[in-house]
């Protein structure tokens, strides 16, 4: 594939930090059905250890390895005939194990995917079933999920071994509102946050299960999603996206917002809005935050990347000749952006 470099060129704003996305590889999944998610995982086998790409469509999940020939070779494929795949659930720091969420309109199953060298077969054991509102993989081989709604909501942290076997289940005190999304807190491993359907930000102690704070944000859009939180100097900095914002004015309706929260007083303030550069239109559809980089697929089919430290859009990736982008994910190494299209094509860009 020809190298394809895209960077923002704006001579007016000299101070703007420009990023560069350079295409390094293309993977074409031949499943024939609509692509639903993509991710990366370190995979160790008898004859190789490599950072592999995981592609998910509704009926199957495939693991891909970059071969010396420059092509991508399928390592394993897991098939799902009863319940469709909704998303890949990244498991930070975990090797040779993939987690997927399956269901119809909402998640009804969470499964681990791995390969058993004992019998030479791929396995897909069930980890959890129910009306699952949100799920997130945490550091140190843990998985948090919320089931049910309102008074009947159960929030649970599931610890697992290297082989994916259950070790321990810890209940977290449920909030009165339904959880929409969880996020880890960088710099505070035992803290967990979530955003609820009524735009309350909830803080837990993961070790004790205590609900420490519930903070109504009040100034955000209903249905916002929390992606990441950073703890620093007694404050929490939380990155939110707004999938339901209006498209009309991207400056008023940014793709991401950073809010600052004082957990001690339960007071919060809007800190930074991550909007599109002038002349670029589109509304946030979906995306991911990793380290200090945030990537979003816009309704226009373009992917936009922001630097959270500088608060600026650093790169834009317009649709290519094959079509619009539908997925944007950071690799586990932070340095690559995986850009996916509905037909199962995955383009890998190095981001500098």
């Amino acid at each position: 594939e020809p190298l394809n470099e895209v960077a923002i060129e704006d001579p007016v704003e000299d101070s703007q930090r420009k990023g560069s996305l350079q295409m390094t590889s293309k993977l074409k999944s031949c499943s024939g059905s609509c692509s639903v998610d993509v991710g990366t995982v370190w995979w160790e086998a008898a004859d190789f250890t490599a950072l592999c790409v995981v592609t998910a469509c509704e009926a199957s999940v495939s693991l891909w390895r970059h071969l010396e020939s420059g092509h991508w070779g399928s390592v394993h494929t897991w098939h799902f005939t009863k319940v469709p795949v909704i998303q890949i659930v990244p498991l930070p720091g975990v090797q040779s194990l993939v987690c997927v969420a399956l269901g119809g309109l909402e998640i009804s199953e969470i499964r681990f995917l791995f390969y058993s060298s004992e019998d030479g077969c791929v396995k897909q054991p069930l980890v959890k079933t129910g009306n699952i509102n949100a799920v997130l993989g945490l550091k140190n081989r843990r998985l948090v999920s919320s089931c049910g709604s309102l008074q009947h909501q159960e929030v649970e942290v599931f610890s697992f071994s290297e082989t994916g076997r259950s070790k321990e289940r810890q209940a977290l005190m449920p909030p009165e509102e339904t959880v929409l999304a969880f996020a880890e807190v960088d710099g505070m491993q035992e803290a967990l946050i979530a955003l609820t359907t009524t735009d309350c930000l909830v803080v837990w102690n993961l070790t004790s299960g205590q609900l420490l704070r519930k903070v109504p944000l009040g100034f955000s859009y209903l249905g916002s999603v929390c992606h990441k939180a950073y703890s620093d100097s007694g404050l929490l900095f939380v990155v939110l996206s707004h999938p339901h914002a209006e498209e009309s004015n991207s400056c008023v309706n940014p793709a991401f917002q950073v809010v600052v929260l004082n957990p001690k007083t339960a007071r919060s303030a809007r800190l930074m809005s991550l909007s599109l550069p002038l002349g670029i239109t589109g509304r946030y559809l979906e995306g991911e935050v990793k380290g200090v980089s945030a990537a979003a697929v816009l309704t226009s089919g373009t992917i936009a990347v922001w630097d959270l430290f500088w608060g600026q859009c650093t790169a834009l990736l317009p649709p290519n000749s094959e079509g619009s982008w539908s997925l944007a994910r950071w690799s586990v190494t932070d340095t690559c952006l995986l850009a996916g299209q509905k037909d199962g094509s995955v383009y890998i860009y190095s981001y500098t």
């Binding site: 803080v203 205590q210 704070r213 100097s233 007694g234 929260l261 004082n262 957990p263 001690k264 800190l271």
Partner: peptide, 23 residues
């Protein structure tokens, strides 16, 4: 943001809230 916007800040908020919150 000044401290007056967000109220007094505590570096040890996590331990302090954990000692106050019901188990």
């Amino acid at each position: 943001h000044s401290e007056s916007d967000l109220g007094p800040i505590s570096i040890n908020w996590f331990e302090e809230l954990s000692s106050e919150a019901p188990l």
